[in-house]
C-alpha cells in the first residue's frame, strides 16, 4: 500500500474510550448472565453446546433405525422358531417348534435352487455389465464427434423404473414380438424363440434385463473414473517410454482400482436382490426356472402364507449375505483409506 502521507484509516477506526461501535467484553458478560432474550434463544444456546449439538441429528436417525430395524430383527428370529401361517390366528399364540423351520428350509430344494439360481444370475450378469460398461467407457474416453449423444443415451436405462423395464421387455419378448422379428431379419430366416416360456430362454431374458439396465451404471462409474485419472503419472510413464498397453496395464488400471471396487461391490450387491424383472417378465416361471431368492421368499410369505418358513429362510440368507457384506465393506474402507493417503502428500 505505502502512501504514508494520508492516514489510511479514519479516526473512527481508532479505539476511543466509550466507543459505541465496540461492545466491550464486560457488556457481553452481563449479557450472558442476564440474557433478556426470549426463552427460544435460551433453548437454542443450550442446543448449540458442542456436546449437545453434535448429537442432534443422531437422535431421530438412530431412533428411526431402532424403531424399524430392531423389533423387526427380533421378530424375524422369533418367527423363525415358530410354526405360524398368516391364516392361523395371532403370531404370539403360535406353537414353538425350535429349529424345524430351519431344517425345513435347508431341505427345501426349491429354496436351495432359488439361492443357487440367484448367484448364477449374478455370476453371469455382473461380469457382463462390468465388461460392457468398461468397454463402452473406454470407447467414449477421448473427445470425438457425437460423444455427448452416446453418453447421454447410454445413461438412459438406469433412469427407468426397473418394474417398467420388466414390463417393457415382456412386451418385446413375446413370441411374435419385435425382438424375434429383429433376430429374424438379422439371421435371414424366421426365428421364434419362446423367450418367456422356455426354461433357458427365460433365464436369458431376466439376465438380459439386468444387463440392459445396469450396464448404464457401470458405464457411468467407469466414465467418471477414467475422467478422474490423474494426468501426471500417465505423462511420466509416457516420458519414461511406456507404450499404450503398458500404461494401461501398469498405471491406469491400478489407479482405477477404487472405481472398479465401486462397480463390483455395487452390482453384485444389487444382483442378489433381483426381484422386479422376474416378477414382471415371467413371474418366476416357466416352472420355477427364473425364481430368484427374493421372488421365492416373497411367495413364501404372501402366496403360501408360510411366514415362519420364510423367516427361517430370510435368516439363512442374511447369514450368507453377511459374509459378502463384511468383505464388501472391508474393500470399500481399504480403498477409501488409500485414496485419502494419496490425497495427503
Amino acid at each position: 500500500m505505502g502512501g504514508s502521507e494520508r492516514p489510511p484509516y479514519p479516526p473512527g477506526a481508532r479505539r476511543a474510550p466509550g466507543d459505541p461501535g465496540r461492545s466491550s467484553i464486560d457488556a457481553q458478560a452481563t449479557c450472558r448472565t442476564n440474557p433478556g432474550r426470549s426463552w427460544i434463544d435460551g433453548v437454542l444456546a443450550r442446543l448449540e453446546r458442542e456436546r449437545v449439538f453434535k448429537w442432534l441429528p443422531f437422535v431421530p436417525v438412530q431412533g428411526l433405525f431402532a424403531l424399524l430395524l430392531l423389533p423387526n430383527a427380533l421378530l424375524l428370529v422369533y418367527l423363525s422358531f415358530l410354526s405360524w401361517r398368516i391364516t392361523r390366528g395371532a403370531w404370539w399364540n403360535a406353537p414353538f417348534t425350535g429349529l424345524d423351520s430351519f431344517l425345513g428350509a435347508l431341505g427345501d430344494e426349491r429354496f436351495l435352487w432359488a439361492v443357487g439360481r440367484t448367484f448364477g444370475f449374478a455370476a453371469v450378469a455382473v461380469p457382463l455389465e462390468l465388461l460392457l460398461g468398461f468397454g463402452l467407457a473406454l470407447l467414449c474416453r477421448e473427445p470425438f464427434r457425437g460423444r455427448r449423444i452416446y453418453t447421454t443415451v447410454f445413461l438412459l436405462p438406469m433412469m427407468i423404473v426397473p418394474a417398467v423395464v420388466g414390463y417393457d421387455l415382456s412386451m418385446l419378448l413375446i413370441d411374435q414380438g419385435p425382438f424375434n422379428q429383429v433376430l429374424s431379419v438379422l439371421a435371414g430366416r424366421p426365428i421364434t424363440v419362446r423367450w418367456l416360456s422356455d426354461y433357458t430362454a427365460a433365464k436369458l431374458a431376466v439376465i438380459g434385463a439386468d444387463v440392459w439396465q445396469w450396464t448404464a451404471l457401470t458405464f457411468l462409474v467407469f466414465v467418471s473414473g477414467l475422467a478422474g485419472l490423474p494426468r501426471d503419472p500417465i505423462r511420466a510413464a509416457r516420458v519414461m517410454g511406456a507404450n499404450r498397453w503398458q500404461i494401461f496395464w501398469h498405471v491406469e488400471l491400478p489407479l482405477l482400482k477404487p472405481v472398479i471396487a465401486i462397480a463390483v461391490v455395487l452390482r453384485s450387491m444389487e444382483a442378489l436382490k433381483i426381484f422386479d424383472y422376474p416378477m414382471l417378465l415371467t413371474q418366476g416361471g416357466p416352472g420355477n426356472s427364473t425364481e430368484t431368492i427374493a421372488v421365492y421368499l416373497w411367495r413364501m410369505g404372501w402366496e403360501f402364507a408360510r411366514v415362519s418358513d420364510a423367516a427361517a429362510m430370510s435368516l439363512i440368507l442374511l447369514v450368507v449375505v453377511s459374509v459378502y457384506i463384511f468383505i464388501a465393506i472391508r474393500v470399500l474402507r481399504r480403498e477409501r483409506r488409500r485414496l485419502a493417503e494419496e490425497a495427503a502428500p
Binding site: S24, I25, Q28, A29, R32
Partner: peptide, 12 residues
C-alpha cells in the same frame, strides 16, 4: 472475563 467455555461469538 473468564471466557474458557464461552461460544466464539460471545468473545468479541
Amino acid at each position: 472475563a473468564r471466557v474458557t467455555d464461552w461460544e466464539p461469538r460471545d468473545r468479541n
